[in-house]
Design a protein around this nucleic acid. Sequence first.
RNA 1: GCGAGCAUAGCCAAGCGGUCAAAGGCGACGGUCUGCAAAACCGUUAAUCAUCGGUUCAAAUCCGAUUGCUCGCUCCA
Length: 466
Amino acid sequence: MLKFHNTLTNQLEEFQPLNDNEVRLYICGPTVWSFAHIGNFRTFTFGDVLRRYLKFKGYKLTHVFNLTDVDDRIINEAKAAAKTIDEFTAPFIEAFWEDFDALGLERPDIAPRATHHIAEMIQIIEKLLENGHAYESDGSIYFRISAFPDYGKLSKINFAGNISGASGRVDTDKYDKENANDFALWKLVDADEPTGWDASFGRGRPGWHIECSAMAMKYLGETFDIHAGGIDLKFPHHENEIAQSEGATENQFAKVWLHSEHLKVEGETMSKSLGNFYTFRDLIAKGYSATAIRYLLLSVPYHKQLNFTFETLDGAEQTIARLRDFRNRLQEAHLPDGINTDLQEKAEKYLNDFEAAMDDNLNTSVALAALHNLVREVNTATAHEVACTEDRSFILHTLDKFDAILGIFGEASEEILDSEIEALIGERQEARRNRNFARSDEIRNLLGEQGIILEDTKDGMRWKRK
RNA sequence: GCGAGCAUAGCCAAGCGGUCAAAGGCGACGGUCUGCAAAACCGUUAAUCAUCGGUUCAAAUCCGAUUGCUCGCUCCA
C-alpha cells in the first residue's frame, strides 16, 4: 500500500488516485538561466524515482515537467548579453536535457515551456480580475490575498508573526500593493522592452508563479493527483500557485504535495560564496560517474536533508562498481545445473522488502538495503555452489525489477577491445599456462596502465575497465 | 523578531513505543580463494542512539529543558 507524506495535510496518507488507475503528476522543473546544480538534480532524481515507482505500481501516468524560461533574471541576463530570451536560454535547455539523460532520468510525457503558454496565463489572470481575486496597480496585476482565506494552507506560515522581508531580499516598498504579501501575476513592461506580451490588461510579462498554474491545469486539469518539487518552492511558489489556481477555478488544485529536502555539501549550505557549489557537469569533469551520483542522490530518502560529501561520492563509486560487477559475474558464472528454490524465495523476499520500503513514502535507503541484502545472499550462494543455472535468470529478472526504479546498474554494454589488447591478453593466458608469471604480471600491469583490469576467476579470465 | 527540522559507529545513513545488545553502504583489519593479485566470500572493527530530566511495565523512538547544526519568512530544487 503506497503512502506519501503530503505536505498539504502534513500527514502520511495512503495514495489513492482521483481516477481509478490514472495518475496525473506535475513536477516543477528548472528555471533555465544557468547549468543545473546537484541540488536541483536531487529533486529531479526524486521526481524520476516517483515517476518510475508509480509505473511500477501499475498506474497509468501523465507526467508534466515544466521549464521556466522567462523570469527577471533571464530577462536581465539576456539583455546584458544582447540576446533574445530564446537565444539566451537555448544552450542551457540543451545542456539540461543532456545532464538529465546522463543521470538516467526518464523524460516526462510533456515538458512545456512557460513562454509557449502565455495565452493560458492571461486567461487565468483575466478570470482572477473578474472574480475579484486580482487587482491592477500602476499597470501591473497583483493577486489579492485578502480574497483567498486559505492562503498559507500549504506553507503554514504565520504571517501575523512575521517580519515582512526579514530575509533582506525584498524591497517591500518597491511596489504599491494593497497588502505586502500580495504577489505579482503580471508585470507591466515598457513599450520599448524587447520581452513583453500583449494582454487585455496591458502589455507585460508574467509573474513568477503563474506559469506553473497555467501549464499544470492545461495538461492535467483543474484538479490533479500529485504536485512535487523542491522544499524551497513550498513558499512562496507553491503557496501562490494554489492561491491563483483555486482562486480562478474554485476547485482544489493538487491533491497531494510532495517536497524534497535540500542537499547540503560537507554539512553546509551549497553556495557559490562558500566555494562548494557544484553543477552536475562539474562532478563529471572531476571524473565521477553519473550512476555514482545518482546512487548518492538516492541513498537518503527524499524528505530528509542529504549531506553530499566527496568521501561519500567515492564510496558510491565503489558501491555501484560492486553492483555492476555482481550482475556481470552472475551472467557469466559457470553454475551447477538445477534449481534452488530457497534462493529464489529469498530473492522474492528482498523484492518484497524493496517494495515495502518504497511504499513507505519512497524510503530509498531501506530499498537500497534490500538490494544489497539480495546481492550478498546470491554471492554467498554462488561461492558455496548452491546457486544454479535455473536461478540465474530469475535473479537477473529480479535485479531488473529493482533497477527499473533505481536505475543504477546502467546498460549492460558489450565493449570491444582492440586487437592489440586482445593479443596481449592471449599472450598472458599462454604465459600463465607456462607458469611464466613474470611475463604474465608484466602484461597485467601494462593493461592496468591502460585502464583495463584483469581478474583470474575460477570461471576463467575476466576483464573490465577501470 | 516569527516559524520548521535535525543531532545514531571513522564517514554517509535507516529507524516513528516492545521483535533494537540498532538495517544498509563506504572505510580499516584478519582469514578463505589465487602462482601473486583482483573480485568474491567469511570474520573482526566500531554506537551507554548530543546532554540532562520526565512519562511508561517498556524509549533511539513520547514530553520538557539545554547545547550544537540546517532551513524558511516572497532569487532559489
